Amino acid sequence: MVDEDERRAWAYLAGVAEPPCAALRTLITEVGITEAARAVAGRSMPSGHAEVLRATEARHGVNTSAEDLDAAARVGGRLVTPDDDEWPGWQLLALSKADTSAKGGEPLALWMRGPVQFDQAVDRSIAIVGSRAASGYGEHVTATISSGLVAENWSVVSGGAYGIDGVAHRNVLASGGVTVAVLACGIDRDYPSGHARLLSEIARTGLVVSEYAPGTTAAKHRFLTRNRLVAALSSAVVVVEAGQRSGAANTAAWARKLGTPLGAVPGPVTSATSVGCHRMIADGVAHLVTDSADILRLARPGGEDVQRSTGSRERPTDNLDANQLRVYDTVPATGTLTIGEISFACGLELRQVRSALAVLEARGMLSTDGSGWSLARGR
């Protein structure tokens, strides 16, 4: 349990350097949160931590931790730290890899508003990202995928932006599921402003999450920093639409760095908003996915038996052998045929036809009135 002094220390250090700051996290690990805050504020750094002094030079003299915690509380928010039970340490651990920590690294702490436990919200989660200038096709696919994931009790993580992000969030909410919006500004800021109502609804039933203290405005570099969290907090990342250059492509790049399974939805070959997806698929860096079943197999290979939402239901003819299928296909939709007529039409011997008819009748696929054979009623 984090006491009030420790939480203030976390709040101070979470904002004293522009995230991410791997050097500051290393200091906290070595000396503890309270001593690390004291060292940064007093500029009395242990040897070997000169990088922390450089990273905190501009902000060390301003401690707004109490005000930040109060601002979060006013919007129903809280600061979650690695010392809290709901911290999803396992998911975020990938950010501490040597090849990602220089530009990424784990967040020091995260601000959030919403009633859901953070670790529970991202335990079974899929990131859905894509173009802000989404097409009608992209919106339709996103809606179908989002509702399919909710039906399998998975949550959806996205960035709260216009386009694909917004469609994903809205359809999860409409389906009664949990969605997490990761922002590039403070949790008390509605960005984009047109999504104020959407973000409020997400905070009512899911989570709005940010690495940045309340009051922080959105900036281009913060969107790129935010994208690593979207990838890290998900069991798989899915790009529905992406242009030649897009934020979604940056999130996809983070997924590859972190070893998070990556899927891309193909689109019309004439669509500029699908160029990025087609390139990822063609280059072999993303798996082609078309529905929620594809995505869940990507996220948990071999772990769950998930039916496709469309086109995967077993057909009556799927388990027929070659002769049985030929006989079944010969019988017309209306009328009847004798055994001899079926034999002539499909080119099988009478004994082969009789054997196939016995199986098809037992399965309820064909019926006979004694003189001829027809499709069973309902077929």
Rank of each mutant, 00 (worst) to 15 (best):
R8I: 10
T29W: 09
V31I: 15
A39D: 13
S47Q: 14
V52I: 06
L53K: 06
R54W: 06
A55L: 13
S65I: 11
A66I: 13
A71L: 06
A71F: 00
A72R: 03
A73F: 05
E86L: 03
P88H: 04
A98M: 15
G105N: 09
E106W: 01
P107H: 10
A109D: 01
R124C: 04
I126M: 05
I128H: 02
A133K: 05
G136L: 12
E139C: 06
T142N: 01
T142P: 02
G166Q: 10
V167D: 01
V167W: 03
H169C: 01
A174C: 04
S175G: 12
G176W: 01
G176D: 12
T179K: 02
A181I: 02
V182F: 03
A184Q: 03
G186T: 11
D190K: 05
D190G: 12
P192W: 06
S193N: 13
S193M: 12
A203E: 02
G206Q: 00
V208Y: 03
V208Q: 01
S210P: 07
E211G: 00
E211D: 15
Y212D: 09
P214Y: 04
P214L: 05
T217D: 07
K220R: 15
H221R: 09
H221K: 06
L229N: 10
A232L: 11
S234V: 11
S235V: 03
V240Y: 06
A242L: 07
G243K: 05
G243Y: 07
G243T: 05
S246L: 08
A249R: 14
A249K: 12
A249G: 12
T251V: 09
A252Q: 12
A253P: 07
A272C: 06
A272F: 02
H278S: 11
H278K: 09
D283W: 11
V285K: 15
A286N: 04
H287I: 06
L288E: 13
L288G: 08
D291E: 14
R297T: 14
A299L: 10
G302L: 11
E304V: 14
R308M: 06
S309P: 01
R313T: 15
P316L: 11
T317P: 00
Y328Q: 00
P332F: 11
A333V: 09
I339Y: 08
C346A: 07
G347L: 03
R351Y: 08
R351E: 15
R351K: 14
R351H: 13
L360Y: 10
E361K: 14
R363H: 11
G372S: 10
L375D: 04
R377E: 15
